Structures are given as C-alpha cells and as structure tokens.
Amino acid sequence: MRIGQTTTKLFIVTGLLALAGCGDGGFGNFFGGGTETVVVNNERPARERSRPERETIWDLFADRDDPNTTVEVNKYLWNAALDVLNFMPLEAADPFTGVMVFGYGTPPGGGGAYKATVFVRDPALDARSIEVAVQSRGGAVSTETAHKIEDAILARARQLRIQDYNL
C-alpha cells in the first residue's frame, strides 16, 4: 500500500470520528449508542424536547414523518368541497385524514334534503383524490349524482388554484 492511500484513509476515519464527536452525544451517538438522560416527572429536558429524536447518522435518511403532524390533503379540494356543499351543515372535519361529514341540507332549487361524506385521500389535484358519498332521507343516492358532485368539487378546486397563482 502506498503512503497516499494510507493518508487518505486516515483523513476519512479522522473526519468521521470528528463528526461523531460533534454535539452533546459524543462518539456513542455515531455508533448507535446514546447518552443517558435522567427523566423527572415523565418529562424530557427542554433541550431534548426541541430537537427530533435521532439515534444514529443513518436515521437522517429514514422516512420518519409523523402521520399525526403531516397533512397530506389537497387544500384546493378541501376548500372546494366546503364551497360546493355550503348548503349542508358541516358536522365533522378532520384535515389529517381528509374526511368531512356534512349533515342534511337542501340544495338551492332542490326539493329533497341530502347529507354527504367527503374523503380527500391524496394531495394531488385529480379525480382519484376525492370520493363523495351522498345520502337522502330515503336512502342512498345514485352513483351518478355522487360523481356529479365530485366533478363540481374538482372544477371549483381548479378555479381556486388558478386564483391562487393568478393564471
């Protein structure tokens, strides 16, 4: 082995150890270990609460999004559904799962009362991202009616997006 190769390997190892020693975790953090923390009253110290939990350097590449804090609902579809179905009272809404439950309401110019459940399942603005279930007081409504409502919501969502971007 030549001296140049040995020097290069030495620099790489030294650099890795220097990176591992950065922060308050010491060398143990780089290799998967960690420092012990005393927990009082079931609370983590303030300096640990503010930073994400990472055990090793490889955790930086892991997909660790918390589904309770990431919202993956298309905002245009969400707002369009509220606009199109504004004649129905909103009974429940969960933006984290994309579900909106509307109570019975009579559409303008219509005779019967309907209720609907809207499920925005994807952040994309396309027809596969939304599903609507409609019911009248007499029972389920035809799938054609539900598809017409989905189309109206999609059209309104596209209008909202165009307004946002001033296209």
Rank of each mutant, 00 (worst) to 15 (best):
residue 59 D to G: 03
residue 81 A to S: 14
residue 75 K to A: 14
residue 57 I to F: 02
residue 84 V to A: 04
residue 163 Q to E: 15
residue 152 A to W: 02
residue 130 I to N: 01
residue 7 T to E: 07
residue 17 L to Y: 04
residue 46 A to E: 08
residue 110 G to E: 15
residue 28 G to V: 13
residue 90 L to N: 01
residue 58 W to F: 12
residue 163 Q to V: 02
residue 106 T to I: 15
residue 113 A to E: 12
residue 23 G to Q: 05
residue 98 G to T: 06
residue 71 V to M: 15
residue 153 I to V: 05
residue 115 K to T: 11
residue 148 K to V: 00
residue 160 L to H: 01
residue 76 Y to W: 14
residue 17 L to E: 02
residue 106 T to H: 04
residue 99 V to C: 07
residue 39 V to F: 06
residue 4 G to N: 14
residue 48 E to F: 06
residue 149 I to A: 02
residue 117 T to A: 10
residue 133 A to R: 02
residue 139 G to C: 03
residue 65 D to A: 12
residue 121 R to S: 09
residue 138 G to K: 01
residue 76 Y to S: 09
residue 163 Q to T: 06
residue 103 G to A: 06
residue 32 G to P: 15
residue 25 G to H: 10
residue 79 N to R: 14
residue 28 G to I: 11
residue 47 R to Q: 12
residue 3 I to F: 14
residue 166 N to C: 00
residue 148 K to C: 01
residue 116 A to C: 09
residue 10 L to S: 11
residue 155 A to K: 06
residue 96 F to Q: 10
residue 91 E to D: 08
residue 102 F to H: 00
residue 17 L to I: 10
residue 73 V to N: 13
residue 122 D to R: 03
residue 1 M to E: 05
residue 75 K to N: 15
residue 33 G to A: 15
residue 18 A to V: 07
residue 91 E to S: 14
residue 89 P to L: 08
residue 103 G to R: 03
residue 27 F to L: 15
residue 33 G to F: 09
residue 26 G to H: 08
residue 150 E to H: 01
residue 162 I to Y: 01
residue 80 A to W: 02
residue 131 E to S: 02
residue 62 A to G: 08
residue 2 R to N: 14
residue 118 V to T: 06
residue 30 F to L: 11
residue 5 Q to P: 07
residue 69 T to S: 15
residue 88 M to S: 03
residue 123 P to Q: 09
residue 39 V to L: 10
residue 66 D to L: 10
residue 131 E to P: 00
residue 8 T to D: 12
residue 101 V to Q: 10
residue 8 T to I: 15
residue 61 F to G: 04
residue 149 I to D: 00
residue 90 L to W: 01
residue 134 V to S: 00
residue 19 L to M: 09
residue 15 G to S: 07
residue 41 N to A: 12
residue 47 R to T: 13
residue 1 M to A: 11
residue 43 E to S: 08
residue 24 D to R: 10
residue 3 I to D: 12
residue 67 P to V: 13
residue 44 R to K: 12
residue 71 V to F: 10
residue 52 P to Y: 02
residue 147 H to K: 07
residue 34 G to H: 11
residue 27 F to K: 05
residue 11 F to I: 09
residue 25 G to E: 14
residue 82 L to E: 14
residue 54 R to N: 05
residue 32 G to H: 13
residue 44 R to F: 14
residue 164 D to Q: 11
residue 33 G to Q: 15
residue 82 L to C: 13
residue 86 N to E: 14
residue 124 A to K: 10
residue 93 A to G: 03
residue 148 K to G: 04
residue 134 V to E: 00
residue 131 E to D: 01
residue 62 A to L: 13
residue 165 Y to E: 07
residue 10 L to Q: 11
residue 28 G to F: 08
residue 74 N to R: 12
residue 85 L to I: 06
residue 140 A to F: 01
residue 18 A to W: 05
residue 145 T to V: 12
residue 134 V to F: 00
residue 118 V to I: 10
